[in-house]
Design a protein around this nucleic acid. Structure first.
Lengths: 204, 204
DNA sequence: GTCTATATGAGGATAGAC
DNA sequence: GTCTATCCTCATATAGAC
């Protein structure tokens, strides 16, 4: 049975997500997932059709939550500078609750997209929708004079996006920096830049 | 035999790198690599001990080149602002010649590091050396007053690094943007920021 | 819902002929 | 340097008992 949500099922998905994140989707065997859950591999197939179904659920859960949060911010409205800052914070904010899913998405995106069939086409669709939301805000900010006009909105979005997500590579909850600090740091850098205005001069 | 460089061998490594980049290391079979080279899988083992040896060579070639380039810039010296900009350009500049290797490094890093043995420990060592080079320049720039003092050097470095490398996900040679444009765009954003100074005001 | 048992296939790697 | 042939292992997935 590959039915809808149940607590048991969600628990199994979480366990699997951790393993996928740690070793990669392909390197994780259904035996390992089952072992982690304290059952045998055959029993997993009572809950899921296939290993792909599991990773599918991992990714959809994350993307649904992410897009819901973005939409909420956009509906509240506000000037582009504030909205964009808020979107950055949302991105970093998902790092903790969805760390495993984001890792899988980063590492196994190419592989999942290379599988035959259209099962993972929604990854592209979600990516497009999110891109539209960001790029729209960047353009609005440029039109309002809040953002410099000489940057490429799409390219800028991609750099922002990548910087946020790729953080899962080294971010560890409970470490030196929490996700709020990361977001603050990045917002500062993104909006105001690294330079002070001093150029090629020695300190006094 | 898993001997040193030969043209044949290097050619095979390049073919394999492309496949690894496209489908991931694990999802690429030795049979596919051999097929691509126009030979049979058994024959590959005349050139390499194992599949791991091949990916090892892919990554070492890239890292050797990268570190050599960084060292050259650092030896030339200069003020931190210029040196950092140059390092950014080097990073983006490797995107084209080493696209496949960088992709593999991004996607399969976790998996390769999770393998038993110390075979891929040099990945960590290389990462550390590169991090030291960057962080040193950022600190120097702060000391010289060229860079703002209220950013974390290590965190800033990581964001820069990630932004550069992760570009391989969507960068395609011959597309709308070449690597020089990417570098210019990023340098602009990194040093001067996205904001204009106008805040929360409507355009006239 | 989990177990036992197993079908089925694929992948990495090897041995030895040519 | 490549081919043929094959070993061995391990993976996903299934069938049916409990």
């Amino acid at each position: 049975m590959a039915g809808p949500a149940s607590e048991r099922r969600e628990h199994l998905v979480r366990l699997a997500a951790e393993l996928f994140a740690r070793k990669g989707f392909q390197a994780t065997t259904v035996r390992e997932i089952a072992l982690e859950a304290g059952i045998l591999s055959g029993s997993l197939y009572h809950h899921f059709d296939s290993k792909e179904t599991i990773v599918d659920e991992v990714l959809r859960t994350f993307l649904d939550d992410l897009i819901t949060r973005y939409r909420a911010v956009l509906e509240r409205g506000g000037d582009p500078h504030s909205v964009l800052a808020e979107m950055v914070r949302i991105g970093f904010g998902t790092l903790e609750p969805h760390r495993a899913a984001i890792t899988v998405m980063q590492n196994d995106w190419n592989y999942l997209r290379s599988l035959p069939g259209d099962r993972f086409d929604y990854l592209l669709r979600a990516e497009d929708e999110v891109e539209r939301m960001w790029v729209e805000q960047i353009r609005a900010g440029q039109a309002a004079g809040q953002f410099r006009a000489d940057v490429d909105p799409k390219l800028t979005y991609r750099m922002i996006r990548d910087t946020i997500w790729v953080t899962v590579r080294w971010f560890r909850p409970g470490g030196r920096l929490d996700t709020d600090s990361l977001a603050d740091h990045f917002v500062k850098l993104l909006f105001d830049g690294l330079a002070t205005g001093e150029r090629a001069s020695r300190p006094s």
